[in-house]
Design a protein around this nucleic acid. Structure first.
Lengths: 355, 355
DNA sequence: GGTGGTTGCGTAAACGCTTACGCAGCCTGA
DNA sequence: TCAGGCTGCGTAAGCGTTTACGCAACCACC
């Protein structure tokens, strides 16, 4: 475990260069492999770096190169929900893809939306980040997104819908919700469901339209359409209780997020409605919790790693080739069948094999 | 929403000073409120900062002041578990308390333990952080902790047990597990439980001894003592299945973490063992998920904010007063009774009021 | 009205790195 | 043999801050 020279002493490039009898420029060239340097010198310097434990000071580097090698992740949701699996999954997806580019991810987990936004803006202005990834909701947060874009920093939105025209220096990774909901409805249709409900959070969420289109394709009715107050399990729980009281139950229910589905599931079970025997349940996001529900939740999966991959690639392109036009890409969702979905009104189901 | 001068143009201190007809030194003094500067000049400069949108470059600041204003959080657990609520809660607790000190938190969510450790070491060596908070397990990770301490950077361990002597420049926030387990056992005892099981993860976890001491005090038997393979819900699920097969059930079970308890709960329910009617369940950590289980899980609460508060205070003291001896503090856990605990063998419980 | 202290501010030297530029020394080809 | 080009490296001027130091201007006091 002991690394050479893991004592607290930090060398500067000058001291290090002097110790090797070369100039600081040569050391710098060796480190970055840029500029004219003989392979032998380079190898020798790299070896001695390891040996003497020299590591360049990142602030000095950033200052000299006018690059921070850091990217911020800005998130529009509430950050207090179940440790916010969605944000964490996404952060993981982005961070993983930043590693090969030697970039760091900055992430603020605390405070309310307003505070977190001010922090990100601070980071931008203090030039502590070179770019930002925003989990955006263009149809809801239009004005904040415009203000952010005005900061003039390379930006990638991870968004459901993409407004046009896009602001300057903004690229979009569009999360395409259609495939997932489509597959889900097709699957339910195949299980014999004719009347499928929807439990949403935001009323102007583009998801509903997508779902209704999919339903039309498969000649299924979306009924009832119902909205919770928010996206937490509590919201899902309360909404489900209400729904149970006021509407005849559909045979299957699409829930906007896994967290809401988690709450909804409990409301159902506490009221003696068996899942999936009496009603099939489908979530969205495929958060880790989905597979741990009882029964494990059929849901719509988001490929967080792919999302992160595209976000990072777009950002890096903007950083390294500012002259090129910004591009946008789409990432499709897909349906994952687990045990919360079953053939309609099949009361004798015991152990459905996981498809 | 539009902030003055939110165009992408960033000023340097020189440009800004020139625009105001003062020197850069004066601007710097105005910003930091240090040194000799007239209140009027200061006010004028601060107002113009707002106006012209000048923000100091953080890298230049760090370089000049030899302070990064950032702290890293290093975590010894697996980071893939249910979005790692524990880590997120803790990070939140630390970050929240860093804000008043104008410090940032750096956090790596990706990669395995070895990779994450190398990243933290990089940060230290590149002087990108001034100090670190390590969620430590001194009795397990002794050698890595020693290696880390050898980096000679102010360090705070958040740990269950505190070895002595401590390495140089290391302070400890000790999470005292006794009060929580003690209260839990007292509570169960009061409900009539005589035989209480334990489901742990690590065998050399100090928790077990603490529990057994508490049990002795309350004249209760800890039996059976059982270990899962790890700390995930899956591990808890599998362990519970095994336990059901091989042992007579205790009337109450203490589970080392909420996540394991989540899995264990499902194993029980799937096998027709009612919680809390047939067996009472107690978790640990009070993660957000605990209150969303069905029934809501009685558990032992950790005050993450307080933990973070002490960690940050200790760190700031080491940073600002290196000459003072490092201190250590203890933070107690406490038991939270929810609905997964009930009087022993009371089969007719319908709706236990939340105490 | 000179002395000594204070106040408010500017000058310039760091901080640790990158990189444009320049200069030897070498190779190549006429 | 020498021009011209290339190679490998050093010199030094930045990057945008902070801060030690110095210097006027002012005050108060004898």
């Amino acid at each position: 475990m002991a690394t050479p020279q893991s004592n607290g002493k930090r060398l500067t490039i000058r001291e290090f260069a002097q110790a090797l009898g070369v100039s600081t420029a040569t050391v710098s060239r060796a480190i970055h492999g840029r500029g004219r340097i003989s392979p032998e010198t380079r190898a020798r310097i790299l070896a001695q770096m390891e040996q003497l434990g020299y590591t360049p000071n990142l602030h000095a580097q950033s200052l000299a190169r006018k690059r921070s090698m850091a990217v911020a992740l800005e998130y529009l949701g509430a950050v207090e929900v179940l440790s916010d699996s969605f944000l964490v999954e996404l952060a993981r997806g982005v961070q993983k893809n930043l590693v090969p580019h030697r970039y760091r991810l900055l992430l603020n987990l605390t405070g309310d939306l307003k505070y977190r936004r001010s922090v990100v803006r601070q980071w931008i202005r203090a030039q502590v980040v070179d770019g930002i990834v925003v989990v955006a909701n263009p149809c809801v947060d239009a004005e904040w997104l415009r203000a952010l874009a005005a900061e003039g920093i390379p930006t990638v939105w991870i968004a459901y819908d993409v407004p046009s025209p896009l602001p300057e220096r903004v690229a979009v990774v569009q999360l395409d919700l259609s495939p997932g909901w489509n597959e889900a409805i097709a699957y339910l249709r195949q299980l014999g469901h004719q009347r499928i409900g929807y439990l949403g959070a935001l009323r102007d969420d583009p998801a509903l339209e997508i779902i209704q289109n999919a339903a039309a394709t498969h000649r299924v009715q979306i009924e009832p359409v119902w909205f919770a107050q928010g996206e937490t399990p509590e919201d899902g729980y309360q909404a489900m209780l209400q729904l149970l009281r006021t509407h005849p139950l559909p045979t299957a229910l699409l829930v906007r997020t896994d967290l809401m589905a988690f709450g909804a599931l409990q409301a159902l079970q506490q009221n003696g409605v068996a899942v999936p025997e009496a009603i099939s349940l489908v979530g969205h996001d495929d958060l880790p919790i989905a597979q741990w529900m009882n029964p494990p939740l059929s849901t719509i999966q988001i490929d967080y790693t792919l999302l992160g991959h595209h976000a990072v690639e777009l950002l890096m392109r903007m950083l390294n080739h500012p002259e090129q036009p910004v591009a946008s890409v789409r990432v499709a969702t897909r349906f994952i069948a687990r045990r919360s979905t079953a053939p309609v009104h099949n009361h004798s189901v015991k152990e459905v094999k996981n498809p």
